[in-house]
Design a protein around this nucleic acid. Sequence first.
DNA 1: TATTGTTATACTCTATAACTATA
DNA 2: TATAGTTATAGAGTATAACAATA
Lengths: 149, 149
Amino acid sequence: MPVTDIPMSRTNAGLASAMRVSVMRLSRRLRNERDASDDLSFNQIAVLFTLGRSGPLTIGDLAAEEKVQPPSMTRTVNSLLEKGLVKRDAHETDRRVVMISLTSLGASVIEESRRRKEVWLAQRLVELTPAQRQILREAAPILEMLSRV
Amino acid sequence: MPVTDIPMSRTNAGLASAMRVSVMRLSRRLRNERDASDDLSFNQIAVLFTLGRSGPLTIGDLAAEEKVQPPSMTRTVNSLLEKGLVKRDAHETDRRVVMISLTSLGASVIEESRRRKEVWLAQRLVELTPAQRQILREAAPILEMLSRV
DNA sequence: TATTGTTATACTCTATAACTATA
DNA sequence: TATAGTTATAGAGTATAACAATA
């Protein structure tokens, strides 16, 4: 049984390769659909999105998530505080800890970013055939499953 | 006709939302599967991957692609030169231009990173049903199409 | 005269070490 | 004594401006 008769995507390794390429490429394209007018650094944006996904987090949690040291996260959070995008709250029981969460303004910033991505994506989706869109409808929850640890 | 009877993913906007979430989440998970032992900065890695995707590029091309200024790209490229991951070559006709390309060492670095992503992904794929894998096989080329401008 | 890339300089970001407050 | 976070200081990264080489 000659290997050359088996298309790449018929094997699990081949499918993994095809999925890596297509998912990483599309995510790169989506990430570029961000609002150019905002004056936020890459890490500032990353912190907002992390808070949007995970809800309120401590400085230490945020530092670990973004893979920076706590003093750097203190600075990043302070700049977001000055812009009114996040707020600080005391921890319920442990007074050493500071809980960081999105303000309504901060939430609107990431919502706007999501909206821009979806507008771009929706425009590309109407160019597909109904059959192709149907495949993506079935694929979306499977992609979600892959991300779950 | 009550809107609540229409599942989100039945509409194009709903499908766009589902695709944005699942693709961005999976890409984030894949990006985290990088080799922790390498001492490369985020932008240094980004340059290597860009060269791996696009082939040899000029300093100016790289700067535009990574959205940094040319002097910054000169520095980043110099650090990659010192590590032996990229090389400089004269342009065929325009002697102002410098072509930057991957060395075999640089190519092996990104190949290793891709391999790690695909090993992780392949492990997740075997946990799916054959029918689910079949859907992904059909979805991969469609995701590719969406990325094309 | 315009374009590509580098050098000079200042500013921003991040890290390590030391410190404060709390557990 | 250990942990969460901040402040102080130094190093790395990035930008703007000025410059050199080439088109």
